[in-house]
Amino acid sequence: MGILWTLIIGAVAGWLGAQIFKGGSLGLIGNIIVGIIGGFIGYFLLGTLFGTAIIGQILTGAVGAIVLLAIINLLSGRRV
């Protein structure tokens, strides 16, 4: 069940990050990957600032996804 929650939260966080960053959606799989990696980045940067509930995890993942999308945008030289 933990893997399923990780995928769901990652997808929502990746989608939310893509909407806020205005970089466009990367599709379901791309959003899940960006959201999960973004969750790690967000936790590294913010810790449990938004709390440990599902909403806090989504917000932390979204912040990390925005950072990840910005880094990808800088490295690739194109808008992601």
Rank of each mutant, 00 (worst) to 15 (best):
I66N: 08
I32Q: 01
I33K: 09
G47I: 14
G42W: 13
A62M: 06
W15L: 07
R78L: 10
L46P: 02
L28H: 05
I32H: 01
I54T: 12
S25D: 12
L4P: 01
A70E: 12
V67S: 10
L68K: 03
F40E: 15
T48W: 06
G61C: 07
L26P: 03
R79I: 04
W5L: 06
T48C: 04
L59Q: 07
L68Y: 09
A62C: 06
L75D: 12
F44N: 06
L26I: 02
G17A: 03
G23H: 04
V80Y: 15
L16K: 03
M1W: 13
L68D: 01
A53V: 15
Y43A: 13
G56F: 06
N31C: 10
V63N: 05
I8V: 10
I29K: 06
G2R: 11
L26C: 04
I32F: 05
G23W: 05
A18S: 11
F40H: 13
G2M: 09
F50M: 05
V63A: 06
G24R: 15
I8C: 00
V12K: 00
L28K: 14
G38P: 11
L7C: 14
G30V: 13
G17C: 05
L74E: 07
V34L: 03
L75C: 13
G42F: 11
R78W: 11
G61N: 01
L46A: 05
M1K: 14
M1E: 12
N73D: 14
I54K: 03
I20P: 01
I55Y: 10
I32V: 13
I54V: 08
I58S: 00
G38A: 08
A65L: 06
G64D: 08
I33G: 03
G77T: 11
G47L: 02
G23K: 05
K22D: 07
I71N: 09
G14Y: 14
G35A: 07
G10R: 12
A13W: 00
F50G: 07
V67G: 05
Q57P: 02
Q19I: 06
G51Y: 02
L16H: 01
I8D: 01
L26A: 13
I55N: 03
G39L: 08
G47A: 07
G42E: 08
I72P: 03
M1S: 11
V63R: 02
I54L: 03
I33M: 12
I54N: 01
L75V: 12
G56A: 04
W5V: 01
W5M: 10
L4G: 02
I54R: 02
V34A: 15
I37H: 00
W5P: 00
Y43H: 15
K22C: 05
G56P: 11
